[in-house]
C-alpha cells in the first residue's frame, strides 16, 4: 500500500498547489493581472489564522477563527486593489508583475517581523485524527484538504459559469473598454476579484498550515503553483486544480523513483516542457495578435 500512501499525500499537497494556482487564475482571468504574490497571500492567510487560533496567541475557537481569517484576507485583497493595484489600471501587464513581486517581498518581511521566521503549525480540531479507508491510512487533515478543495473549485466554476457577477467578471477581463460601455463597473469588479483571490489564498493557507508547519518564506511555494497554473493553461479554473494535482503527484513519485537532488527538479522541468511545447497548457486559450 506504499503507492496508495504516496498518492494520497501527493493529492493533498497537489490540492494546496491547485488552490494557490486557482488564485492566480482567478485574478488573471478577471483582471489580466498576474499576481506573483499569491503564494505570499496564502502564507499571510495561514499566519492570520494561526494568530487567531493558536493558544499562544488569541486562542479563538477554530470554527470561529476560520471565517474571520477568510474575510480578513478578502478585505486585504480588496484594499490592496483599491489602494495600490488599481493605480496601474491600463499600464502594461509587466508593471503589475513587478508590483506584486514587491508586495510579496513586503509580506514576507512583515509576517516575519510580526510572527517571527520560525515554522509554526496551525492547531486544528482534527489534528492527528486517522481514518482507515479500505486499508489505506488517511490523516483527517488530508481528507479535509481534498474535500475542501473540490468544493471550492466546484463553487468557483459554477460562479463563473452561472452567476451574474461571475459573468460580469469574465466580460470585464476580455475587453475592459467594452465592458465599461455596457455598464459593468469594471474597477469595482476587479477589486472584488482581488478580494476573492485573497479569500481563496486564505483557504489554501489554512489547509497548508494544518498539514505541516509554515514559515514566511513558504510563500515562495507560489512558484510551484505557477507550474500548476501553466500546466492547466493559465485561464482555466479546473485546469489549475488538475495542474496542481499533477505537480503534487509528481513530487512524491519523483522522490521515490529518482536519486536525491533530481526529484525537486521534476515540477519545474515539467513546467518548462509544457511552456515550450504546449504553451497554452491543456486548455488552450491563446490567440496570436492580429495585425
Amino acid at each position: 500500500m506504499d503507492i496508495m500512501q504516496l498518492v494520497v499525500s501527493g493529492l493533498a499537497n497537489g490540492c494546496v498547489y491547485g488552490l494557490i494556482a486557482l488564485g492566480f487564475v482567478l485574478i488573471y482571468k478577471a483582471t489580466e493581472a498576474v499576481n506573483f504574490a499569491q503564494g505570499d497571500f496564502m502564507m499571510l492567510g495561514a499566519f492570520i489564522t494561526i494568530w487567531l487560533v493558536n493558544a499562544e496567541y488569541m486562542g479563538l475557537n477554530f470554527w470561529v477563527a476560520v471565517p474571520i481569517a477568510i474575510v480578513m484576507m478578502g478585505i486585504f485583497g480588496y484594499l490592496l486593489d483599491v489602494l495600490v493595484v488599481r493605480r496601474l489600471f491600463g499600464q502594461p501587464q509587466i508593471a503589475v508583475v513587478i508590483l506584486t513581486i514587491a508586495i510579496g517581498f513586503v509580506l514576507r518581511f512583515a509576517v516575519g517581523a510580526i510572527w517571527t521566521h520560525e515554522p509554526q503549525l496551525l492547531e486544528t480540531p482534527f489534528a492527528g485524527g486517522i481514518a482507515n479507508v479500505g486499508g489505506i491510512v488517511l490523516g483527517y487533515e488530508e481528507i479535509a484538504v481534498i474535500i475542501v478543495t473540490l468544493l471550492l473549485t466546484g463553487f468557483l466554476f459554477l460562479f463563473f459559469r452561472r452567476a451574474k457577477l461571475g459573468k460580469a467578471m469574465q466580460a470585464a477581463s476580455q475587453n475592459q473598454l467594452a465592458a465599461y460601455y455596457v455598464g459593468i463597473p469594471v474597477k469595482r469588479i476587479q477589486s472584488l476579484v482581488w478580494a476573492l483571490g485573497g479569500a481563496v489564498a486564505a483557504v489554501a493557507g489554512i489547509l497548508f498550515a494544518s498539514k505541516g508547519a509554515i514559515d514566511p518564506s513558504t510563500g515562495l511555494l507560489g512558484i510551484k503553483a505557477f507550474a500548476a497554473a501553466v500546466i492547466g493553461g493559465f485561464g482555466s479554473l479546473p485546469g489549475a486544480l488538475i495542474g496542481g494535482l499533477i505537480i503534487g503527484m509528481v513530487e512524491p513519485f519523483a522522490a521515490y523513483a529518482l536519486p536525491a537532488g533530481y526529484s525537486q527538479i521534476a515540477p519545474y522541468a515539467i513546467m518548462l516542457l509544457v511552456l515550450i511545447f504546449r504553451p497554452a497548457g491543456l486548455f488552450a486559450q491563446m490567440q496570436n495578435k492580429k495585425v
Binding site: 509587466i94 511552456l275 515550450i276 504553451p279
Partner: peptide
C-alpha cells in the same frame, strides 16, 4: 526555445530556469 514565449509566460519560464539552476 524559451524566447518563443511572450510576456508573463517568459517571466515564469525564466523563473523556472533560475530554480532549476540551483538544483543543477
Amino acid at each position: 526555445p524559451v524566447l518563443r514565449l511572450h510576456g508573463i509566460y517568459l517571466a515564469i519560464a525564466t523563473l523556472a530556469i533560475s530554480v532549476l539552476s540551483e538544483d543543477i
